[in-house]
Amino acid sequence: MIINNLKLIREKKKISQSELAALLESSRQTINGIEKNKYNPSLQLALKIAYYLNTPLEDIFQWQ
């Protein structure tokens, strides 16, 4: 199971779900699903999230 700190990191950087979704060329619903652990992002999307949040991938997503 993958757990994530996306919501915590996103809020700390003062970025809304909609703003992050626009940067990622994704939907706000996708970001919401990832944050609620209802959806696991593809590797490509996970890497883009890490890039746009300027945060190491392993700080956002962790195996448990």
Rank of each mutant, 00 (worst) to 15 (best):
Y52I: 15
N40H: 12
I49R: 00
L45E: 05
N32E: 15
A46L: 06
I9W: 08
Q17Y: 08
I34G: 01
L43Q: 08
R10M: 08
Q64V: 12
K48R: 12
P56S: 08
K48M: 10
L6Y: 00
S16A: 05
E19C: 11
Q44F: 09
K48I: 05
A50K: 01
N54Q: 13
L45M: 12
K48P: 00
F61H: 00
A46D: 00
L57T: 03
A46P: 00
Q17F: 04
K14D: 09
A22E: 12
I31M: 03
K7W: 04
R10N: 02
W63I: 05
S16P: 05
I34C: 03
L20A: 01
Q44R: 13
A46Q: 06
A50G: 03
I15T: 04
L43R: 11
L53I: 03
K7G: 07
K12P: 01
I15P: 00
S27K: 09
L6P: 03
L24F: 01
Q44D: 13
I60H: 01
Y52S: 06
L57C: 08
L23F: 12
Y51S: 08
L24T: 15
K13V: 08
I60M: 05
K13F: 11
I2W: 09
K13Q: 13
L57I: 12
Y52C: 11
E35V: 03
K36T: 15
P41I: 09
E35I: 05
L53V: 03
I49V: 05
N54S: 11
A46T: 03
I49P: 00
W63V: 04
E58C: 13
N5I: 07
K36C: 11
L45F: 13
N32V: 13
K14I: 04
I31R: 01
F61P: 00
E58I: 09
Y39C: 13
I60P: 01
Q17H: 04
L45H: 02
Y52K: 05
K38L: 15
F61L: 02
E58Q: 12
T55W: 05
Q62T: 09
T55V: 12
Q29F: 09
Y51R: 09
M1F: 08
E58K: 12
D59S: 09
S26G: 07
Q17S: 05
E11R: 09
Q62V: 13
S27T: 14
A46R: 05
N54R: 08
E25V: 09
I49F: 02
L47M: 13
A21P: 00
E58P: 09
I49Q: 00
K12W: 08
E11K: 11
I34E: 01
S27D: 15
S18E: 13
M1E: 04
I2L: 13
K14F: 09
S16W: 07
G33A: 15
Y52H: 12
A50V: 04
D59Q: 13
Y39E: 10
N37V: 02
N37K: 08
A50I: 05
N40M: 15
N54I: 06
S27H: 07
Y39D: 05
K14W: 06
R10K: 01
E19I: 09
K12C: 12
R10G: 03
Q64L: 06
K48Y: 04
W63F: 08
E58G: 13
E11Y: 06
L23Q: 09
L20V: 01
K12E: 12
I49T: 00
Y51D: 09
I9A: 06
S42C: 06
S27M: 04
P56R: 09
